[in-house]
């Protein structure tokens, strides 16, 4: 059973994304296949060069880089949203890959979770 966890909100604005990331890490801890999708405003999680110490927060970019070590299968980015936020797919941190969010895309997963 492969789970897709969707992060569709901006980083640092609220805690939803961190909760979603925690969920992904927990599934990975039990060796459950899990993929993270950054959709809409969520693609800004993947912008390289974040530095959040002045906000007294930890960089979500750094936190996210632990995903593959913990066993998250893949990090995907919403192709349309990348354009909207002026990100190019080759600059994304964690070598996330862009994807078209077609109905067929979602059908690859047994469960889709959006917090």
């Amino acid at each position: 059973m492969h789970t897709l966890i969707v992060i569709d909100r901006l980083p640092y604005g609220d805690w939803h994304g961190r909760e979603a990331l925690d969920m992904a890490f927990s599934l990975a801890a039990f060796d459950r296949p899990v993929t993270l999708l950054f959709r809409g405003a969520g693609v800004n999680w993947l912008r390289p060069g974040q530095s959040a110490d002045q906000l007294s927060q930890k960089s979500v970019e750094r936190n996210l880089s632990a995903a593959t070590i913990f066993g998250v299968s893949a990090l995907l980015a919403d192709k349309a949203a990348l354009r909207q936020y002026r990100l190019s797919s080759d600059q994304l941190s964690q070598s996330a890959s862009e994807t078209d969010l077609t109905p067929a895309f979602y059908k690859q997963f047994d469960a889709v979770v959006v917090l």
């Binding site: 980083p11 640092y12 912008r47 060069g49 974040q50 530095s51 959040a52 002045q54 927060q57 960089s59």
Partner: peptide, 12 residues
Amino acid sequence: RADVNARALSES
């Protein structure tokens, strides 16, 4: 600036 740096927008 702190919010711009956190989100890696200082080059933008």
